[in-house]
């Protein structure tokens, strides 16, 4: 079966800095992939390119059979708004800082895009939104505004909002990094439930190693714009091959152990 995401020799530069260097990467339909690595290694950039938030300079990219090269267009990096619209219709994203719309209630945050973009009728969109909010455990908060919710609740609304657009590919960009440690669990719980959705392809950038091991089919370690090592999680974590991977894992696992220790002491 064709991969749902295919990067072929993609190069992305910010000025003189090369963030992705001849990057090759494929994701199967329904696969759950975790991207880890030091900051600046290019893992978030992969998600941002997929969401069309960043252009890239060279190479090919295909999502669900749609190429970034617009047929008859002026090259891949000058795609028209209509073409970008088509690419985005298969992809959803959950951001580190939630990015809910502060002037809309929780329900409207979830309803607005299906109504305005998918042209769903409002009643139908609202009943679907209510269903999604129930799934993330927030049906009692639908008339609240984002400022009245905790970070964990806001992130769960953001997940419901992304799901309301029925994406085939859902991108999580460090979804728990901006949360207080005691709120991380509730968001991971929702993502864990989603990981059981057979058809949904998930790409997750995270520093939660235990969670990555638990939910993903494959873990990719990024360093300096390339995937240095990738494997299924059991093998990846128990027997990393590359010295860079081992170094990274031991530093981040040590850190998380310390964090858990200090939390235990605080309680």
């Amino acid at each position: 079966m064709n991969p749902i995401i295919r990067f072929e020799n993609v190069t992305k530069r910010f000025g003189a800095l090369t963030v992705l260097d001849n990057f090759n990467f494929e994701v199967r339909r329904g696969e759950k992939v975790t991207l880890i690595g030091p900051s600046g290694s290019g893992k978030s950039t992969v998600l941002r390119i997929l969401m069309t938030l960043e252009p890239f300079q060279e190479g090919l990219l295909e999502i669900d059979g749609i190429s970034y090269h617009e047929p008859g267009g002026r090259g891949p990096f000058k795609a028209s708004e209509t073409h970008l619209h088509k690419i985005r219709s298969n992809v959803g994203m959950v951001f580190q800082s939630f990015n809910l719309f502060p002037h809309m209630t929780v329900l409207r945050n979830v309803v607005e895009a299906p109504v305005a973009v998918l042209k769903m009728n409002r009643g139908e969109a609202e009943s679907r939104a209510t269903e999604l909010l129930r799934m993330v455990g927030l049906s009692d908060k639908k008339d609240h505004f984002p400022s009245q919710l905790s970070g964990g609740q806001q992130q769960r609304v953001a997940i419901a909002r992304a799901l309301a657009m029925r994406p085939r590919v859902l991108l999580f960009d460090e979804p728990t990094s901006a949360l207080d440690p005691q709120l991380v669990g509730e968001v991971l719980g929702v993502i864990r439930d989603l990981a059981h959705e057979h058809d949904l392809t998930m790409l997750l950038v995270t520093h939660e190693m235990r969670f990555a091991r638990e939910v993903s089919d494959r873990v990719c370690f990024f360093d300096r714009g390339r995937i240095v090592e990738q494997d299924e999680p059991e093998r990846f974590f128990s027997n990393p091959q590359q010295p860079r991977t081992r170094e990274f894992l031991s530093s981040i696992l040590g850190e998380q152990e310390q964090m858990r220790e200090s939390l235990r002491c605080a309680q």
């Binding site: 969401m51 938030l53 708004e81 619209h85 985005r88 219709s89 607005e112 895009a113 973009v117």
Partner: peptide, 16 residues
């Protein structure tokens, strides 16, 4: 800027 990125991720048109 993050508000505009969220809007783009939800595929809203520019005028919307």
């Amino acid at each position: 800027h993050t508000q505009l990125e969220a809007a783009r991720a939800l595929n809203f048109s520019k005028s919307y």
